[in-house]
């Protein structure tokens, strides 16, 4: 479980994160959603310590990360995995070497044990026959999967994903989303995902925090979001008319006004 309290962050007098508090639960996909520039990345980087918040506390399982000395942070970080927006693979290393790197650095396993572990994770993310390729030779979706494999190879307790499906087609996005969801429950991780992708929100949003201009504007689950009366949230998530209609349909459906298994032929007659 990760708890953040009253986080503030500004760059050169410009407030980017304004008094955000939240709790992120274990074994759940916790989503931070919001438009581009709403502060999702900055908030996530504050939580993992890549930025220092100006104010506020961050607690990992009740341990105060903000007050930890660098040595304590380094130790805690070995329990953190993170997938970056651009995947951040080491481009001088092959796929296999990328995933093996944390094992090389932090474990005393033998080469064959490491190799076994690497193959295991790569298989877990459905990546085969790419072991010897370099990041420049694989597609965006594959890079994300390598990024996830590298993030989970040390069995972290906390997983952070910054826009895991930016730049991917809807179908590949869905695959990545489901993968994140599965490993979250499988390894009982506290997962935090930044996204502005409507599909992910509906697919994996166990708990959702909506950021609007640096503030936490709304909080709930993907069930609640349909019924939310928050205008900013509705404008963001149901941006197109088509999605507005889809939302209205779903609401009618959930309220029992129309049949769930309605037949399209009935409607068009």
């Amino acid at each position: 479980m990760i708890e953040i309290r009253n986080i503030h962050k500004s760059f050169n007098e410009k407030t980017v994160i304004d008094d955000v508090s939240a709790t992120f639960e274990a074994a759940k996909c916790n989503l931070i959603i919001g438009a581009s520039g709403s502060g999702k990345t900055v908030l996530m980087k504050c939580i993992v310590g890549l930025f220092e918040p100006d104010n506020g506390d961050i607690l990992y399982n009740n341990e105060n990360f903000t007050k930890m000395p660098e040595s304590g942070r380094k130790e805690l970080r070995q329990k953190i995995g993170m997938l970056f927006q651009g995947s951040a693979l080491f481009d001088s290393m092959t796929v296999e070497q990328n995933v093996m790197f944390p094992l090389d650095m932090f474990t005393k396993l033998s080469t064959s044990q490491k190799q076994k572990k690497v193959n295991e994770v790569l298989e877990r993310v459905n990546l085969k026959d790419a072991n010897k390729k370099f990041p420049s030779e694989i597609s965006g979706g594959m890079k994300k999967r390598v990024g996830i494999a590298r993030a989970i190879v040390l069995n972290p307790q906390y997983l952070f994903c910054d826009e895991p499906n930016s730049g991917l087609d809807p179908k590949t996005s869905l695959v990545i989303d489901r993968l994140i969801k599965e490993i979250t429950t499988e390894f009982n991780m506290t997962t935090i995902v930044n996204t502005h992708d409507m599909n992910s929100v509906m697919e994996i949003g166990d708990k959702i925090i909506f950021m609007y201009q640096g503030k936490k504007e709304w909080e709930g689950s993907n069930q609640d979001i349909i019924f939310s009366k928050n205008d900013n949230l509705n404008n963001f998530i149901f941006a197109s008319e088509f999605l507005q209609d889809a939302k209205d349909m779903r609401m009618l459906e959930l309220k029992g006004k129309i049949k769930e298994n309605r037949n399209m032929d009935d409607l068009t007659q």
Partner: peptide
């Protein structure tokens, strides 16, 4: 510079590396 821009340095830091 390339490692910084592509967040590879952040990725190393997150792993707990100085």
């Amino acid at each position: 510079g390339n490692m910084r821009i592509s967040e590879q340095i952040d990725a190393l830091k997150i792993m707990g590396i100085n």
